[in-house]
């Protein structure tokens, strides 16, 4: 049985690199990524699982890191943050299609859209909507984001 009773040294595999980090069992993955590992792309928005700004990939699945305890992923899970997918096609198409305004929600959208493109490269509008409804943008609206996803799908063909 694994047990974490106090501050513990754990190994987290983030963006392909294994990092040793001292954490409390009550630390969320979001806080550990930002405050202990300096990976600040995932954003604290609502910290209630609603907005999706904190989305990261765990074993290729998008997950809201504000609701995940860091100790839960101390088992060789592959964590990917936006820093781990830099220069991806979806980032290019967000720029080309003006898929953002203030940019605070953008890392969450990018990571989620990246996972969608990987798992369902030919996702139709219905499936894309189902995935991207997990993220909230409060300034620019969703048209540019939808267009960016479609353009990325075309470029990846």
């Amino acid at each position: 049985m694994k047990a974490y009773e106090n501050i513990s040294l754990v190994k987290l595999k983030v963006n392909g690199e294994t990092r040793d980090v001292a954490i409390r069992p009550a630390d969320t993955l979001l806080r550990v990524l930002r405050e202990k590992l300096g990976l600040t792309a995932a954003k604290p928005g609502c910290e209630n699982g609603d907005c999706g700004a904190c989305t990261v990939l765990i074993n290729e699945k998008p997950v809201k890191s504000c609701m995940k305890l860091a100790v839960e992923v101390d088992a060789g899970a592959e964590i990917i943050t936006l820093e781990g997918i830099k220069n991806s096609i979806i980032q290019e198409t967000f720029l080309e299609e003006d898929g953002f305004q203030c940019g605070y929600c953008t890392p969450g959208f990018l990571v989620n859209a990246y996972a969608l493109l990987k798992e369902h490269p030919d996702a139709d509008d219905k499936l894309a909507k189902e995935w991207l409804e997990s993220n909230i943008c409060r300034c620019t609206g969703y048209e540019g984001i939808r267009n960016a996803l479609k353009l990325a799908q075309e470029k990846l063909k």
């Binding site: 047990a3 969320t28 100790v71």
Partner: peptide
């Protein structure tokens, strides 16, 4: 941030979980 501490256990089987509780 969660403003208090707790312990975290991950038992490997049913018996461990029940006994731990």
């Amino acid at each position: 941030m969660i403003p208090f501490n707790f312990k975290y256990y991950r038992p490997a089987n049913i018996e461990e979980a029940v006994e731990l509780y």
